[in-house]
Design a protein around this nucleic acid. Structure first.
Length: 469
RNA sequence: GGCCCGUUCGUCUAGUGGUUAGGACUCCAGGUUUUCAUCCUGGCAACAGGAGUUCGAUUCUCCUACGGGCUACCA
């Protein structure tokens, strides 16, 4: 089921970095396009000079690139299309579908406070003379769309039929008093000019869609197909925002998540293929994606599940790829160590790390002697001087090992435990504390093998000096 | 205030006019392990409420409640 003529777009406004909701909208557009062999475009909606900032544009582009959501044509900037919009306004004015409104912001506000939620139509039917008079007086004006009686219906790919009576829509503003066009107006022109076939965006636009359809009609354009995605919610079921501490996409990169993990989690938020599969590769996502299986209700953001999915990816990734990925975020990690050493570390840690930053944190003791010892670990495994005695007694065993390999190390530990009639843990755990500073981690035999005899003995002696005090 | 949309375990969700309402995350218990993680086993936990249609409704219809969105010279 391919359709190469399909064109979709992601159209963020650069008023902040790319957030979770935006990323998912972009993803669904992208998946929809890929699945059918269509095109995915990117457009920056920067018509609001007050809030738009170039640095955010750069960040958004960067985030999308990191996610791997590549776009098929040069980015379109609305701020560079102002002339196009002007032409359209002119045409609409000449045909009488748009008119000047001289009402001041203050007037409109007082009217609203008085309970009139809609524009009362004050300037709807001004005569030529009245308009000239106001123009001569230098009164600023906005342009409004003249709403006609009737109803507008459209078929939403996700929400089904949506019908709104024009009575509910007032003559909304399409050009501000400073001459800049508003969103609901330019979005139509851009989507038309870019030949967009499917407009896939957030549910917050459902109510805007009838207005936009009216613009399509006024301009004589054929409208695209619309699909609205449910919102992503915070734990209080309100739309996810910075208030919830929701991080931008950049943060996930910095925290060492695979883009694929984030994307996969995002995809399952509001969509699922109806199978019991939980972890998808990007290709599988593309293959399975279908708008008809998108949920209508908002979905609560759950960091824990993302964390779990991320763990799945890390666990299943190849060690070489992990090394490459860790290094791309933290170029200094393991600097000066042999690649084979780093590969071994990752091999040991990949089943325990959920992100690259966890690799960094958990691998500390492979590179540096512990500076402190985990308190809870000490309490359990190095309570008193008896631990010192045991660990000291173990040192000669270390000296005796001819092949410093995990197999021989294991034999040494076991024979120590046997001849001292203590459990294996009684000797392993204190050694672990001495060498790693923490009770948690991979097999001690593997750690010691990697560290080598000298470092091991050195760390044990240091610990004997410092502990238990 | 008006209009639009939504409502299955705490969360993401599957599903059907007749099911022990399924899976996943989380949480809990047990097993494996030197520890942690992994892995395995098991457990807790849901059809918002009320009418109607029907032999039978979680499923269809209506109402209510609750939640969300829009109602900007934001997008």
């Amino acid at each position: 089921m391919t359709n190469p003529s399909i064109k979709v777009r992601f159209a963020p406004s650069p008023t902040g970095e790319l957030h979770i909701g935006g990323a998912r909208t972009a993803l669904f557009n992208w998946l929809f396009a890929k699945k059918q062999g269509g095109k995915f475009f990117l457009r920056i909606e920067d018509t609001d000079p007050e809030r738009s900032q170039e640095k955010y544009t750069d960040q958004i582009l960067e985030s999308l690139t990191w996610l791997g959501l590549h776009w098929d044509q040069p980015v379109v900037y609305q701020s560079q299309r102002l002339d196009v919009y002007k032409e359209r306004v002119k045409a609409l004015t000449e045909s009488g579908q748009v008119y000047r409104c001289f009402c001041s912001k203050a007037d409109l506000l007082t009217a609203r406070d008085a309970g009139h939620y809609q524009y009362p139509g004050t300037c709807r039917n001004l005569t030529e003379d009245e308009i000239k008079l106001r123009l001569n007086q230098g009164i600023g004006f906005t342009m409004r769309l003249r709403m006609l009686e009737g109803k507008t219906t459209y078929k939403d790919l996700i929400y089904g039929d949506i019908c709104v009576d024009h009575k509910e829509l007032d003559d909304f503003i399409i050009v501000r008093s400073d001459g800049s066009p508003t969103y609901n107006f330019v979005v139509v022109i851009d989507d038309h000019d870019q030949d967009i076939t499917h407009v896939i965006r957030g549910e917050d636009h459902v109510s805007n869609t009838p207005k936009q359809i009216l613009i399509y009609k006024a301009l004589g354009f054929t409208e695209p197909i619309f699909a609205h995605l449910p919102m992503i919610l915070g734990h209080d079921k309100k739309r996810l925002s910075k208030r919830h501490g929701a991080p931008g996409v950049q943060n996930f990169r910095d925290d060492g998540y695979f883009p694929e993990s984030l994307l996969s989690y995002l995809a399952l938020l509001g969509w699922n293929p109806g199978t019991e599969k939980e972890v998808f590769s990007l290709d599988e996502l593309v293959e399975n994606f279908d708008l008809s299986q998108v949920q209508k209700k908002g979905a609560v953001w759950d960091e824990k599940k993302l964390h779990w999915i991320s763990g799945q990816y890390v666990m299943n990734a190849s060690t070489e790829f992990l090394l490459e990925s860790v290094r791309s975020i933290h170029p200094d990690w393991g600097k000066g160590s042999a690649i084979s050493f780093l590969i071994s570390i990752i091999e040991l840690l990949k089943v325990r790390a959920k992100s690259f930053t966890e690799f960094i944190n958990q691998s500390e003791y492979f590179f540096h002697d512990p500076e402190s010892y985990d308190k809870a670990g000490l309490k359990k495994w190095w309570k008193d001087e008896s631990a010192n005695e045991r660990v000291s007694a173990f040192l000669p065993y270390c000296e005796k090992i001819t092949n410093w390999r995990k197999e021989d190390l294991e034999i040494a530990f076991k024979s120590f435990a046997e001849s001292n009639e203590c459990g294996l843990g009684k000797i392993i755990m204190p050694i672990r504390m001495a060498v790693c500073g923490t009770p948690n981690g991979p097999s001690i035999f593997e750690i010691l093998e990697l560290l080598g005899r000298d470092k091991t003995i050195h760390r044990i002696e240091t610990a004997l000096d410092k502990l238990p005090g």
